[in-house]
């Protein structure tokens, strides 16, 4: 099929430069955009720099590397890039007011050792994190299932058919079954 090769027509730009504060002077705008992530165009948070010198938020770059695992290139200049070879930037007073749910796998070089347990439930869990997380919780629903199926036939105190208690137990076991199914589905989707 006829086509056009990218390289010669590709024009890089930095849309959104200083778009938010129209009052700032030109020079200020340029300075601000210096520190904008090349992917989300916001000021880079959890900033990392590639060996080719391009700045990204670590979460943004990580998501891009996950998107194309077989072809890891710098989004800006197409130089080879890898998780191991990016340099995290630590400004004065970094690692503060971030929403912990937005944290993606810790940046390479492992400076931030503190691990909040809530992290893994964020919708932003990628790669390794997600895997370990699902695996850890995976034991739960099976526990649910066994207890669910036991109700009614093996328990010594099962209530006789037709009584109010029996109905309640049936109802409860159905709820548990549903919970287990919902939980399993959620795990599969996660």
């Amino acid at each position: 099929m006829a086509s056009s090769s990218s390289t010669e027509h590709t024009v890089k730009d930095n849309a959104g430069d200083g778009a938010q504060n129209p009052e700032t002077k030109e020079e200020d705008k340029k300075d601000d955009s210096m520190f904008e992530c090349n992917i989300c165009l916001d000021t880079a948070r959890d900033a990392v720099v590639s060996m080719c010198g391009h700045l990204f938020c670590w979460p943004c770059l990580h998501q891009w590397l996950e998107t194309r695992p077989n072809r890891q290139v710098c989004p800006v200049c197409k130089a080879a890039i890898s998780k191991e070879k990016v340099v995290p930037l630590y400004g004065r007073g970094s690692s503060k007011q971030e929403d912990p749910r937005e944290k993606v796998p810790p940046r390479p070089a492992g400076q931030r050792t503190e691990q909040e347990p809530g992290n893994s439930f964020s919708g932003f869990g990628f790669g390794d994190n997600t895997f370990h997380m699902s695996f850890g919780i995976g034991a739960f629903p099976f526990g649910f299932f066994t207890s669910t199926f036991n109700i009614g036939d093996q328990r010594p105190h099962a209530a006789p058919q037709g009584t109010q208690q029996h109905m309640e137990e049936q109802f409860l076991s159905k709820i548990f079954l549903w919970l287990a199914i919902v939980f399993l589905t959620w795990l599969l989707m996660a």
Partner: peptide, 26 residues
């Protein structure tokens, strides 16, 4: 449009503006 940056060579550092300029140039 058959233009590789729209599929294989897409990069998140590209933008609507850069795609438009590529098409103008094409």
């Amino acid at each position: 449009i058959c233009l590789s940056i729209l599929t294989d060579d897409w990069s998140p550092a590209l933008s609507v503006q850069s795609v438009c300029l590529s098409i103008v140039s094409m």
